[in-house]
Amino acid sequence: MEILVFVKQVPDDGVEVRLDPATGKPATGSIDKVANAFDTYALELAARYTEANGGKVTVAAMGPAGTDSTLKNLIAVGASKAYLFTDPSFETGDEASVACRLAQLVKKCEAENGAPFDLILCGKESTDEISGQVGARLAEELDLPFVSSVIEVAPAGDKLVAKQETEDGYIKFETAMPAVYTIAKPGYDPRYPNIKAKLAARKAVIPTFSAADAGVGEAPCFVECLGYTEPPKRQAGLKVQEKEVADTVAKAMEILIQDKVL
């Protein structure tokens, strides 16, 4: 079983992104870049699948040159190979552009890997743009079966069964291979690297390709960002803090009654 996991490098979502007053754009430059959380869940799910059923996991990313350190970290936590695709043309576009490029990168990854992929995984959404479109569009571009928000994958003869988490339960889908799944948060966390894996990953060389190297041509782009604003701010109200907890609660109750919310 050959699994390909696409990874996006995003600003650490633990840090609030604000607009840069000078440019009017999101100020993400100083925020640490990490692998998108849902993509790390995808990698962990893939690693567990191959550990149980055989096979190996390849990760690939489109991103700026610094993305190779993110990919190295992923080699320490379950990926056996990683490819980076870096090109100025990749910096622009919308979800349609990204899906179109990824569809072409699958072929390049397969050529480098020396074997076709049986399963292609993406996180269900990225924590920066949160549009959740790329996995679905990629499946369409490749004309492959698609299941979203998967939390479990099991072999079923020459097919796979993917368990999709829904709002109040689950749906199991059976698909042929290859397929494209997007991954939600399973009931476990991604593993931590051990020292040996960390050292090996540090030495790893990440093959890096340009658009021309990878044979990626022009990609469509439909959605244009006209600008950014910040949401209306809420005015902070009163803060209550007395020495005794009972007094704090009494005072808070007084205000709540006065403000007619209770």
């Binding site: 607009l19 949160i130 950014y228 604003t229 949401p231």
Partner: peptide, 18 residues
């Protein structure tokens, strides 16, 4: 269109040329 991004701290204004 307007839509939130980055967990809601940023609002994008978008146009779909499709």
């Amino acid at each position: 269109y307007t839509r939130p991004a980055f967990g809601g701290t940023v609002i994008e204004k978008l146009k779909n040329h499709g």
